[in-house]
Design a protein around this nucleic acid. Structure first.
Lengths: 205, 205
DNA sequence: TGTACATCAGTGAACGCGCGTTCACTGATGTAC
DNA sequence: TGTACATCAGTGAACGCGCGTTCACTGATGTAC
């Protein structure tokens, strides 16, 4: 990674932390460049305007989340051949990873885009929507494979159930932040896992 | 309600809609007073500063949410004596109410406080935390009564399960906003309801 | 009923600071021949 | 190896606008006697 790309990443790191705690509108370029120890013109060398920073930041965030989810659920499938058990293992690994974040999950950029929607252009909102739809497809694929083998014990819409993964994470992050208790996010993921167990597993002890 | 109080409410209505779509930092007083058709000095007659607007807005929001939840779950208890069935009825009523919002849930102020935490003073963050803790206590009371009669089929922390109500709503709102599909929130509440059924109900058809 | 005064619900003008953005310029590094 | 040029990764100064806040003032309504 060249010097330019390094600075660019650093600017996005600083901006992301600020956006997650102050919102995009209250995150000023002055503040970012002060922390990055660069001039304002240096910032505009890397990003045409503030909206391009937002776009680049969101793109990077979503790609990283996808990578993390790939790793976790690929690993889970390595550990068990059965789709249900692999999914349950994946959720456990996911919860553990969230519990291990030193000062809790810093927040989800996708959520801030939703709660700052009028600050962004259509391009960014589309990117945000596609990211969430990709998560839906990812988990829907797993759930369909599970439901083929294990008939669900309650009538559920698998698409909504797939969304429940993302929903649980988004909700868990808000609850963790509101109460200042990082562990809540992991707890919520484990409750979702409990639901999946009760819904699909034939015999729960 | 006097003329002053009416203006005050109107200012908060406008501010709330803006905060939920742009964040607190990007919500300007100029913008609020333009929509309210009042001068800037008129605004400062009602609120000492911007932070007092935030405090008043959050307080009003939380009190209203509490009132709505009271109504729904009181009504549910009127409809069924058994605590589990009353709770399930309450969740159904809640989901229906969320589904009936004409253009979807506008967003939760508690979530925006979390994602704008560095913009607010300790007083506001405390108020936010107390609101979430009150929701926890509310649902924990119901869940304890349920668990006394119906032994849960999976080992769950009832406090976390109580939090799951708020978490589901927060997550569902984010998902609804991200995908522009208001119905998602109601779906997520019904999935939580399905979990409660599977967890406590002895025989699900 | 009339008068004096207080409170309510604002107005109008001004303030200084911080914001995002532009523009002309520059030293260091990389590449072609 | 030396030279010419291009690209990279920025600097420095200036811009105009919008922001939150203050202050002295005011007309309308309410209250006491």
């Amino acid at each position: 990674m060249g010097k330019g790309q390094q600075t660019r990443e650093r600017l996005m790191d600083i901006a992301e932390a600020s956006v997650l705690t102050k919102g995009f509108g209250a995150t000023s370029i002055d503040e970012i460049i002060a922390e990055a120890e660069i001039t304002k013109s240096g910032f505009f060398y890397h990003f045409r305007d503030k909206n391009e920073l937002a776009r680049a930041m969101l793109l990077r965030y979503v790609e990283n989340e996808d990578k993390v989810l790939d790793e976790i659920f690929d690993r889970a499938r390595e550990l068990h051949d059965d789709p249900l058990h692999a999914f349950l293992i994946g959720l456990k690994l996911f919860a553990e990873m969230m519990a291990d974040l030193p000062s809790g999950h810093p927040g989800c950029l996708v959520a801030t885009v939703c709660y700052n929607e009028r600050l962004f252009d259509q391009k960014i909102r589309d990117l945000n929507e596609r990211a969430v739809l990709a998560w839906r497809e990812r988990f829907l694929t797993e759930l369909r494979a599970i439901a083929e083998i294990y008939p669900p014990k309650d009538k559920v819409n698998l698409e909504a159930l797939a969304d429940m993964v993302s929903s649980t994470v988004e909700g868990g992050i808000v609850m963790s932040k509101a109460l200042g208790q990082p562990k809540i996010l992991a707890e919520q993921i484990l409750l979702f896992r409990s639901y999946v167990k009760l819904l699909f597993l034939p015999a729960v002890n």
